[in-house]
Design a protein around this nucleic acid. Structure first.
Lengths: 134, 134
DNA sequence: ATAATGACTTGCAATATGCAAGCGACTCTG
DNA sequence: CAGAGTCGCTTGCATATTGCAAGTCATTAT
């Protein structure tokens, strides 16, 4: 049975269409939301974890890995003493983040009840706040 | 503080963010590809079925239903003798389709190996045109 | 009558996601 | 130095979403 399937070195894209290829990269349930968050200033695992949508930790770890491999985000140790990492968008990632603004406008215009959230929060204090069930 | 939570009639959106809300609508594996195809002139179930990505029939049927319910697409009988249906984008759907052009540009610029399909053409009356590889 | 076609449905596998814990490195308090 | 806490993840299952093959139904073409 030669089920010509993808082996490890085989990328096997669904198609060559740039839209489809882009969606293969970030067309899952969480990637674009992470890009949104990074685009709006979130940087650490912990910060990314507490978005209002409530991404599970395993998915977050996995998506960050994938975004990094795809060259959309980068992980950097921004301090060692307690070693801490910051995720940031690469230029490609930023560009994609900008595309999200078009989606945002569409949503604001076409989905009643949606409204823009507050803008970035600079790297200052993160107190707990929020929580409760997300 | 006031973490606005579920009322009884609450749809339970993941959040109120327009990007998140938009993705709840079309952020699955296939919806945006269908919108792409309709944006590029495909109209019938059969035409939509034979995209290069190969959407399964059950998913196609389900997504069309959802897009219709979301007010992004419409189904119309365009002939009865053999009764046949045509799906078309509503204005909202068209607008979203246009947002896809931004994604397309991003893909072309950032994903090597992806190449454009045919140009943005308004729904044309072309007959068959299985439109080879995309 | 038989075969085809378009537009779906149905019944399971195979995947992907979600949730709750746990782990390791470190740091901070007492 | 013994906890206790924080951050950044893993691991182990449940549950949900997708994928594949086949079947259905109404017509129509041979």
């Amino acid at each position: 049975m030669n089920t010509r399937k993808a082996d490890k070195t085989d990328k096997a894209w669904r198609s060559v269409c740039p839209i489809a290829r882009t969606l293969e990269l970030v067309g899952d349930k969480w990637s674009l939301l992470l890009i949104r968050d990074m685009r709006f200033g979130k940087r650490t695992y912990g910060e990314l974890l507490d978005s209002p949508e409530g991404i599970p930790t395993n998915i977050l770890a996995d998506r960050l890995k994938r975004l990094e491999e795809a060259g959309l985000a980068e992980r950097a140790e921004y301090q060692d003493r307690p070693v801490r990492y910051a995720y940031t968008l690469t230029e490609k990632g930023q560009d994609l983040g900008n595309v999200l603004l078009a989606l945002k406008r569409w949503g604001e215009a076409n989905i009643p009840g949606s409204r823009a959230l507050r803008q970035p929060a600079p790297p200052s204090r993160r107190k707990v706040s929020v929580s409760g069930v997300k």
